[in-house]
């Protein structure tokens, strides 16, 4: 392993015209949960530029295989088998190592294993719906799962979520923390979803749609989707005049 000196610079300003605003009335729950005052900015301190580290030792053997990690011995989850892989990069294009990725999703019928999900689609006794992994030195990750189903949700009288996988990521600084969702190549439901529509720019939405990659499939086993994720970039400290005691 390379012995890289940890970076200590602040992070690029977040582009708030690219990210979804807090108040998005098409997604009704945001109305009462959106701050209305301007958020306050200040230069990044150690509280922002540092962040927790998770070692590979926390991972169990099946943490990145949702087809098996809740299944009874010898059985596996129902649904089209897929591999999701990609890289975690930062805005400079550099791979981000040691990123803890956690993901969760509905089963193939669109039902979550959660006491608050009452959708009539059945639970799959062999599917829990959670997984996790940590990126390698170049920012690569992968996991196995089944294709989640679309599901209806209470917003308008007939709103449906496109098939999606929820992602949570830690970068190297606490202000790189990100939660997002991955959608699937070719799904017409993406463009009808009020939660997707909270994102102002089409290009930003397209950045959340994983590409089908037939070259990465495992023949007679699982198709592959490529999903790269970009975290905030970091200022280099190379050019800085170091202040005393800093």
């Amino acid at each position: 392993m390379r012995n890289v000196r940890p970076e200590t610079g602040g992070f690029f300003q977040r582009d708030r015209t690219w990210q979804p605003p807090a108040f998005t009335p098409g997604y009704k729950t945001s109305v009462m949960r959106s701050p209305q005052r301007a958020p306050v900015s200040f230069p990044h301190t150690l509280s922002e530029t540092t962040g927790p580290v998770f070692g590979h030792h926390i991972l169990g053997e099946r943490d990145n295989d949702l087809t098996l990690n809740f299944a009874k011995p010898g059985e596996s989850a129902i649904g089209p088998r897929i591999i999701v892989y990609g890289r975690v990069l930062d805005e400079r294009g550099a791979g981000v190592s040691n990123v803890l990725l956690e993901f969760w999703q509905a089963n193939a019928g669109g039902r979550y294993r959660h006491k608050k999900d009452g959708y009539l689609a059945p639970l799959d006794p062999n599917f829990g719906g959670c997984g996790r992994t940590i990126t390698d030195a170049n920012g690569n990750y992968f996991f196995r799962t089944i294709m989640p189903g679309a599901y209806p949700w209470p917003n308008g009288i007939n709103d449906w979520r496109p098939a999606h996988i929820h992602f949570s990521l830690f970068g190297h600084g606490f202000v790189q923390r990100l939660i997002t969702q991955m959608y699937f190549d070719g799904d017409p439901m993406i463009w009808q979803c009020p939660i997707v529509a909270t994102i102002p720019e089409r290009r930003a939405i397209e950045g959340l749609i994983a590409a089908l990659d037939m070259q990465a499939t495992v023949p007679m086993d699982a198709r592959a989707y490529k999903f790269d994720i970009v975290l905030r970039g970091r200022h280099s400290t190379l050019f800085e005049n170091r202040m005393e005691g800093n």
Partner: peptide
């Protein structure tokens, strides 16, 4: 690159 767009963590 642009930071990936955020989406709600949702109810689950």
């Amino acid at each position: 690159l642009k930071e990936s767009a955020s989406q709600t963590a949702g109810p689950y």
